[in-house]
Design a protein around this nucleic acid. Structure first.
Lengths: 231, 231
DNA sequence: CCAAAAGTGTTCAGCTTACACCCATGA
DNA sequence: TCATGGGTGTAAGCTGAACACTTTTGG
């Protein structure tokens, strides 16, 4: 059985990960200043080669874990990149993934070890190979996805306030929304539950905390309703 | 430079193509009854191995051309599939593509040679490996995409009638639409131009032909308007 | 007491949806 | 003449978008 494919060529396969994090103000990318060849000294996405004992998804999880120390985060495949000379050194097929992480959860030491830095999506250094394209596409995907699925919550702590959530959406779409309309829309899905507690860091009056009720969201989907933030 | 990656493993990389065609009534898939190993005698998508002189997109074009004799058709990457045992024979990373073709354009002889057959998306044989998943995902992508981009036209001849177009959308979404609303919506984009000619095969009265004006569509997009068929 | 952020309703326009009848013509 | 599919308009309901003032409280 294992002889059918002998005549065909084999290729290096890698995964590259676009890591998004929200710092309360801006949407950020986690980028690597490479202290290893090739393209040493230049900026790139975090990546790694596929190993024969892991699936693509597992490779992406491993690479993300290596850099951040995080497991069980939102991680989704973007697409494969396979131009012949995309990596000028040698031919590599790269599968791009994007991840949404809570920006305060990661392991600082690991970031330092890998020479990783956060940059806002509006202003980050030019990246090697086709990584700029990957980022562009990942942002487009995130924007599309955030309209129909509550993935924003992946980048926020369990307890959030409505103004925080609005700031996240504004950071994703790079525009301002009307706070009355935003609150109305978000609350209309009945997936947020108001707590009796207030966040008092950012204002004197304080904003009520809510938490995202995953169970209610599942029910919403099962009943054929769809989450649809029209932005 | 080419020594950096020596320590890493290499993999077979293939492309598999979900080919859609519309026969005037139903949306169909072009499937292969394999007369070659592995899984000889079973049904699968058309696929082929990546060669070192071509990009992924080029590999997909080549494979599609091999089967249909068609060039310059709508062809877009879906995503990569890389589970370890997805191909029980040997490990292969497969990049799935989907294509939209005009069902009457292909080369019949080639189809016969490859043992290829059209099956409606509502009723087709079970496929090998993870090909059923690929098809499922391709249909979902097509449905999403058809809402915001006029890709339906890729499966129709240059001259179409409104009832034909409606049947295509009904075949994609597997539901009926109101013909008054459909016509109103489609014509409101002003990308269809009415001809003085009628299609008289399917009705005695005859339906006016229209043609899709690509130039007008480009202008529509440039002006910030968006094609959005609300289905 | 005041600055700063949180919270709250209403109106208008545009879009989606539902719905029924006449038209043209080949057989 | 009649069966078949093509073609047409309007009204109601819903959703998105625009818009300004009051509340709370720490400093």
């Amino acid at each position: 059985m294992s002889s059918y494919y002998k005549e065909h060529e084999k290729f290096y396969v890698a995964v590259d990960i676009i890591i998004f994090g929200f710092d309360g103000e801006r949407l950020n990318l986690l980028l690597i200043k490479r202290n290893f060849p090739p393209s040493k000294g230049k900026w790139s996405l975090m990546g790694g080669f596929l190993k024969n004992y892991e699936s693509l998804d597992q490779a992406a999880e491993r690479v993300l874990y290596t850099l951040t120390g995080l497991n069980n985060v939102f991680l989704e495949q973007l697409q494969a990149y396979g131009n012949i000379y995309r990596d000028p050194g040698e031919r590599v097929i790269s599968i791009a993934y994007y991840a949404l992480i809570k920006i305060d959860d990661y392991d600082e030491n690991l970031l330092e070890k890998h020479n990783a830095h956060w940059y806002p999506i509006t202003d980050f250094p030019s990246l090697i190979f086709d990584h700029n394209n990957m980022v562009k596409r990942a942002i487009a995907r995130l924007r599309r996805k955030a309209k129909t699925q509550p993935i924003g919550f992946e980048m926020l702590p369990a307890k959030i306030t409505i103004p925080q959530l609005q700031k996240l959406y504004e950071a994703i779409y790079l525009k301002k929304f009307d706070k009355r309309n935003f609150r109305k829309k978000i609350l209309s899905y009945n997936v947020l539950e108001k707590l009796d507690e207030k966040e008092k860091e950012t204002s004197k009056k304080g904003a009520y905390y809510y938490y995202f009720n995953e169970r209610k969201y599942s029910q919403l989907l099962e009943n054929g309703y769809s989450f649809n933030v029209n932005i």
